[in-house]
Design a protein around this nucleic acid. Structure first.
Length: 362
DNA sequence: TCTGGGGTCCTAGGACCC
DNA sequence: TCTGGGGTCCTAGGACCC
């Protein structure tokens, strides 16, 4: 259990990252509703969010909500640059920094922080603003859960420190679906039993939650509601899989087109794995149908590979077996993942291919 | 609002081994 | 012949997050 006596975990999250980078790089966009991405909204500035625009929303729907919104094209180089500048600040302020994507991280200030938590958090926000030119929100607490929820509550461009004594007052009024780790499905089951707030969850016994949600989720949600966090802040988490997919919209595709897509996906994954020196054994075919239901089919190769051919071969085999299902239900998205990655230090010659033993046991 | 592309973690049953 | 415990791997699916 990782619940410290005093707040020392920070969650730092750049506000509307892609949109903020666009506004930083083009002063004419500042103060305006900005949407990044055309087909689907990848990010919306806070000005755009006031019109109800959210990331993941279709571009057409977003333009209906706010016709005057400025559409910015995504720019990966700028994001990577901006991310480097942000993390340079974070790494300088905490002994342990756990990345969550380009624009988000947990920090553990350690047993004996150099400065009070609030002071460090303020300094973090100031330095990210000065050195990366971006607004960042920080939450602080005794656990990752509380830090994460605190930054969410403080957005945009804010800071919230939740003290040990203030935890229940902070968490209990929250709606269950606001908790990090409770999504739509779980929230619906809880609602059906009259459970709407975290406070109500906290008054439930674990047994009752297990009855409602099943063993795994029930225990997990019980722990969440009581701020029992099992996860420390950890630097360097190893990647577990590589994936690539392509959405089709509505129209079902003829088989030769599917095979072309499959070949492109396999090639893309292989290139990425090769450039980072990884290899994997398990090939997953991911399918999504007209009703948006998903299935996966997998095949495990005898040896790890980073080559396009074997990945494509396995994917073709899985696709062929799934064709009757595809013809029946219509396909809206086709994807491949490669998992079961060979890890450094496995004691085989792959260690050499992997670039040396950076991996840790366990 | 009819839905993009990338991930993670967990669970559970069956096969297989000692 | 019957019985038991413990472990790993593979496959499939569920749920969630940014």
């Amino acid at each position: 259990m990782f619940v410290y006596r005093e707040p020392r975990v920070l969650h730092a999250d750049v506000d509307a990252f892609f949109a903020s980078v666009a506004q930083r790089d083009d002063p004419a966009l500042r103060g305006l509703p900005v949407i990044v991405g055309g087909g689907v909204v990848l990010a919306a500035s806070y000005e755009a969010r006031r019109f109800g625009i959210r990331s993941g929303m279709g571009g057409a729907a977003a333009r209906r909500l706010c016709p005057q919104a400025v559409i910015a094209q995504p720019s990966w180089e700028s994001y990577v640059d901006a991310s480097r500048a942000v993390f340079a600040v974070l790494e300088g302020l905490a002994p342990v920094v756990e990345r969550l994507g380009l624009e988000e991280a947990f920090l553990d200030l350690g047993e004996h922080p150099r400065a009070p938590v609030r002071e460090t958090a303020e300094r973090l926000r100031r330095e990210v603003r000065e050195q990366a030119g971006l607004p960042i929100t920080v939450g602080a607490g005794r656990t990752k859960i509380v830090a994460k929820m605190a930054s969410r509550a403080a957005k945009p461009d804010g800071l919230l420190v939740v003290t040990a004594a203030g935890e229940d007052a902070f968490l209990h009024p929250l709606a269950v679906e606001e908790l990090w780790g409770i999504g739509g499905k779980t929230a619906a089951k809880l609602h059906a039993c009259g459970l709407r707030t975290v406070g109500q969850l906290a008054r439930c016994g674990e047994a009752q939650l297990v009855e409602i949600l099943g063993k795994g989720s029930g225990r997990h949600v019980h722990a969440l509601a009581h701020n029992h966090d099992r996860h420390p802040v950890t630097a360097e988490r190893r990647r577990r899989s590589y994936g690539s997919q392509r959405a089709y919209g509505r129209a079902p595709r003829p088989p030769d087109d599917l095979d072309e897509t499959l070949a492109r996906l396999a090639e893309r994954i292989a290139k990425r794995m090769q450039s980072s020196g990884d290899s994997g054994r398990t090939v997953l075919l991911r399918l999504r149908f007209g009703d948006y239901e998903r299935v996966t089919r997998s095949h495990t190769l005898r040896d790890p590979t980073a080559a396009g051919e074997p990945i494509l071969g396995a994917a073709r085999m899985l696709l062929a077996a799934a064709m009757p299902m595809i013809e029946r239900r219509g396909l809206t998205c086709l994807g491949i993942s490669v998992a079961n990655l060979a890890s450094a230090g496995s004691g085989t010659q792959l260690e050499l291919l992997d670039g040396g033993g950076a991996g840790r046991p366990g």
